[in-house]
């Protein structure tokens, strides 16, 4: 696996990742059908302020509250690599909440 000749540059035109080619992009299957958010529409005049439920966020890697496993700063517990990122990541939050989460 150290052989430099075998190493090929991969690039995904779907998500700009250098870890996989386009035909193996997780975005092919990691597609969520988002709710027609009636609540949000009603709340529009209500400033549309959605809060991150930090009390429901737990880490699959260290067990603590407040961050997802992909974002854990402890040593990785599982010996299976997680190159492409999983569902349990701040990146899998809606755009509006992402900023608050990473702050």
């Amino acid at each position: 696996s150290q052989c430099p000749h075998k190493w090929k540059r991969v690039y995904c035109t779907l998500c700009n990742s250098k870890r996989h080619a386009r035909d193996r992009c997780p975005s092919i299957w990691r597609v969520y059908l988002i709710k027609e958010d009636k609540e949000n529409k009603n709340k529009n005049f209500n400033n549309n302020k959605k809060q991150i439920p930090f009390d429901k966020i737990y880490c699959y890697n260290c067990g603590s509250q407040g961050h997802f496993g992909d974002d854990c700063d402890q040593r990785r517990s599982s010996r299976v690599p997680n190159d492409d990122g999983s569902a349990f990541s701040g990146d899998n939050l809606p755009a509006k909440l992402k900023k608050d989460y990473y702050n």
Partner: peptide
């Protein structure tokens, strides 16, 4: 993905 690849069975309950 979670329970096959990422979950830390050694450390997490």
């Amino acid at each position: 993905e979670l329970y096959g690849k990422n979950f830390g069975y050694d450390d997490v309950a």
